[in-house]
Design a protein around this nucleic acid. Structure first.
Length: 482
RNA sequence: GGGGAUGUACGCUAACCUGGUAGACUACUAGCUUUGGGAGCUAGUCGUCCGAGUUCAAAUCUCGGCAUCCCCA
């Protein structure tokens, strides 16, 4: 606790960008470093990522996905092997060209994603149908040096993520993985970061470089902009053909594997901050909070001994079930501490003074609503547990409500434009499926198709493309994205 | 991809136009005093984004770079 900061000086509703930057930095979640676009994750921020990572990893592991690790560097010739892939990533690759004073014969890419280096190994590891499915995953960092204007977490040049890379004998088996992965990501987001998103299919022009089809979970931020969350790609046999990943099937016939890739990244932490934070600062969902409960002892000189003894006692009890911190700094007033812990987003604060000791109750303040309520010291564990559960649920419900409140249907193109300008968010509209209409809308409004939600596709009957008026093949969500 | 604005201490800001001892608040350190919603006093520490140019002299003027923010595509 070496530094203290003033509070947040702008309102979330008035200047979202400024608010976001202030909250994320002043709360001590992450910080800028000397390298533009590359962040330092501070203990609270990294804890939230670790919690998200652990939850995801656990679900992957239970389903049979195994963790591996591949090099940070990728030989240039590997990137060249799949043409769509190289086209998509080349503009943003950072290169290693020298070691010491000598120039490398072949420069090495700092991985923007690991398909190419992993699949080179897959081609050696996979020989028979007995080797399949091969479902591997790695937790690592990647670098995409494209951005003109980085935004902490939401658009960082280096970010942390998982990259799952699986290989199957048949398309059917490969496709069957999609529901599991997207369902896992949805659950992880809900149960940990308390955020929601729209699951859908990307259009051909927005799909992953090298994939046959891409699926994503899309978020809406309070600024009205959309942001892509976790994704899943059906790669078909494209990479298998480029990297020679073949196997002999039961009949002794040689075939290429069918592959999927999928990822969730530290960008989700940015979405969490953006959605839950308020004018007082950060609000961290209990599941990912490094400190879930902060105890602020309140004493005068004559009550100090008694209050500190009670504080230690309660700390000892609560630490068995929760992540607890006691703020015993003598130099600061209780009011100062309240403000600081609120800015840092700690879910529950316990106020404990002579008055509480006498009444055998503490004051518990919840960060999400700001409500203060007495809790009986005798039943403190239950009371805190209920409170933390409530906060987690409440944050998720609010995030979900915000999401759906900001998706509005449009029947006509004029309506679509009007909604984008007035509200931002997503506009649900019919689309004929042509790249031409998609691009026209993008050029004219700046909004692209975030995805085509899986659960609205049945509404296409009778719907028209909002741009050309022809019969709609899809219901698409349009939004201006980060 | 195009345009605009801004860079002074951890943060916020003054001096810049009109070149001449970088100052306030906050934070930080020490001591005293205080402690139920950002407490006070005293003393101290820390700064002109980087590089080049003009000049006796540059935070200030010029050029370049870098960074941050905003708008448009």
């Amino acid at each position: 606790m070496s530094e203290k900061q003033e509070g947040i000086t702008v309102k979330k509703s008035q200047d979202f960008s400024e608010w976001y930057t202030q909250v994320i930095i002043k709360s001590g979640f992450v910080d800028y470093t000397a390298v533009s676009g590359c962040l330092a994750f501070r203990p609270d921020g990294y804890f939230a990522w670790e919690a998200t990572m652990r939850a995801t990893d656990e679900l992957f592991r239970k389903d049979g996905i195994l963790n591996v690790y591949f090099p940070l560097f990728i030989p240039e010739k590997f990137l060249q092997k799949e043409q769509e892939h190289v086209k998509g990533f080349t503009p943003e690759v950072a290169w290693v060209t020298h070691t010491g004073e000598s120039k490398l014969d072949e420069r090495l890419a700092v991985r923007p994603t690991s398909e190419t280096i992993m699949y080179d190994s897959y081609s050696k590891w996979i020989r028979s149908w007995r080797d399949l499915p091969m479902r591997l995953n790695q937790w690592n960092n990647v670098v995409r040096w494209e951005f003109k204007h980085p935004v902490p977490l939401l658009r960082s040049r280096e970010f942390l993520w998982n990259e799952g890379h699986t290989a199957f004998a048949t398309k059917k088996e490969a496709d069957a993985e999609q529901d599991f992965v997207l369902g896992t990501y949805e659950a992880v987001l809900k149960d940990n970061l308390a955020i929601a998103g729209i699951v859908g299919r990307k259009t051909d022009s927005e799909k992953f470089a090298g994939a046959d089809a891409s699926y994503s979970i899309e978020h809406i931020l309070p600024s009205g902009k959309t942001v892509q969350g976790p994704d899943f790609h059906s790669d078909g046999q494209r990479f298998a053909k480029a990297f020679g990943i073949t196997f002999l099937d039961k009949e002794g016939k040689k075939d290429f594997v069918y592959q999927n890739t999928f990822a969730i990244s530290t960008r989700e932490l940015g979405v969490m901050v953006a959605l839950h934070g308020d004018d007082k600062g950060l609000v961290i969902p209990p599941m990912v909070a490094r400190i879930q409960v902060v105890i602020v002892p309140i004493y005068k000189e004559d009550t100090m001994k008694e209050v500190m003894a009670a504080t230690k006692e309660i700390q000892k009890r609560l630490s068995k079930k929760f992540r607890v911190h006691v703020d015993d700094r003598d130099a600061y007033s209780p009011g100062w501490k309240f403000n600081e812990w609120e800015m840092r987003g700690v879910p529950v604060r316990i106020e404990l003074g002579a008055r509480e000791i006498k009444e055998k109750k503490v004051v518990a303040a919840r960060r999400d609503t700001g409500e203060k309520a007495p809790l009986a010291i005798g039943e403190l564990e239950d009371g805190i547990e209920t409170l933390l559960d409530d906060i987690q649920t409440n944050l998720y419900n609010n995030a979900k409500k915000f999401l759906y409140d900001n998706i509005r249907p449009a029947k006509t193109y004029a309506e679509l434009k009007k909604i984008l300008d007035q509200h931002g968010g997503m506009v649900e509209a019919g689309w004929c499926g042509s790249a031409e209409c998609e691009n026209r809308v993008k050029d004219e409004t700046g909004a692209k198709i975030t995805n085509m939600p899986l659960d609205t596709q049945k509404k296409t009957k009778g719907a028209k493309c909002t741009y050309c008026g022809k019969e709609a093949k899809h219901i698409a969500n349009f939004g201006r994205s980060y």
